[in-house]
Amino acid sequence: MLREPLTAGVCDGATESVLAKDWARLLSRVAAEHAMEQSEFLAGGTAFEEFASSAVAQWDPWLKQYTQARQVEGRPLKWYEHTKLAAGAYATLLTVRVDPDLDQYRDTTEPGWRWRAAALGDSCLFHLRNDRLAQAFPVAAVEEFGTTPDLFGSRNHDVALLARRTRFTEGTCQPGDRLLLMTDALAAWLLAAQDQDDAVRQVLEYAGPDDLDEFKNWLNGLRDSRQLRNDDVALVRIDFEGR
């Protein structure tokens, strides 16, 4: 029985910006830390603005360390890299926090969970019940994917604007439910599938905890058949079990 909060997330770096993967990694870590310490940030408002300000404030110190490391390695930044770095790095944001519903557990002896999520851009959360899609967030249909999703910039100090563009939701889970967090390429494949139940079955079959190679081979097969856009894929799977 989970008795402590759990946080997870995926942040997808924009390939057209420099050091996007590094910014995505930093952003995901900061979001998870804030979600653990202050769950109300996943409801928006001032708490989210404080998180956004903290994330942006950590970019320049990280970049200074990166620049110094490159200098020590004999690979100083080129002039054109300085130009790109001035523009900042960009990534989507998806963060979820899960809390055990201890009141329900005391009343019914059956475990339950409550979750909150925040999303900026097109990384998606899917809530499965009976291994069927019950909720998709923030994109509910494949037609909603575009070529220019909202992004979280490493130099964007307009945290009120970031908060306004971010979407928030919450829900409850029961034993047998699952949450899937995934970046846009795999999310679009799932939402576009003619047989969505079969698509969900494939994700659950190949995205198990034990065989990363099998998961990679499955993705490459989808890419080879042009069912999946050739892009990076990140996936987090949370399964809810009984006592």
Rank of each mutant, 00 (worst) to 15 (best):
D195K: 00
G45M: 08
T169D: 15
D239H: 06
P61D: 03
S53W: 12
E16N: 10
V142T: 15
L204F: 01
A188L: 02
L2H: 07
Y206L: 15
E205Y: 12
A47F: 04
P5H: 14
D197T: 14
Q68M: 09
G208Q: 11
A47I: 02
Q104S: 10
A69S: 15
E37C: 04
V30H: 05
L2N: 10
A89P: 11
L212H: 10
F152G: 00
E205Q: 15
A141L: 11
R29Q: 12
E4P: 01
C173H: 00
A117Y: 02
E16A: 14
L191N: 08
R223H: 02
W115K: 04
A35E: 03
V72I: 15
V159K: 01
E143K: 04
H127C: 07
V203T: 08
E241L: 10
P76M: 12
R226P: 00
S123W: 01
A187T: 10
S54Y: 05
Q174W: 07
Q135N: 04
A199I: 07
E37G: 13
D239Y: 02
T109Q: 12
L77C: 09
M182Y: 10
A141V: 10
Y206M: 13
V203F: 03
V200D: 05
Y80F: 14
V98R: 00
T67C: 01
A134N: 02
A163H: 05
L219E: 11
G9I: 05
A87R: 09
A117Q: 04
G121K: 07
L228Y: 05
T46H: 13
A87E: 11
P175A: 10
N217W: 06
A52I: 09
R116Y: 01
V96Q: 03
W115D: 05
Q58D: 07
D103N: 06
R164L: 10
T46F: 06
M36A: 14
W59Q: 05
A207K: 04
L85G: 06
Y90P: 02
R106I: 06
G44T: 11
L181Y: 02
G176W: 11
R226V: 07
Q65C: 00
I238T: 10
L77Q: 03
Q38F: 09
A57P: 00
V233T: 15
G176M: 13
H157G: 02
T109A: 11
F168G: 12
M1I: 09
G88C: 05
T148W: 12
S39T: 14
P138D: 10
A187E: 06
K21V: 02
Q38D: 15
E144K: 09
R129M: 03
H157F: 09
K64H: 08
W62T: 01
P61G: 05
R165I: 00
A8S: 15
A55E: 06
N220A: 13
T7R: 00
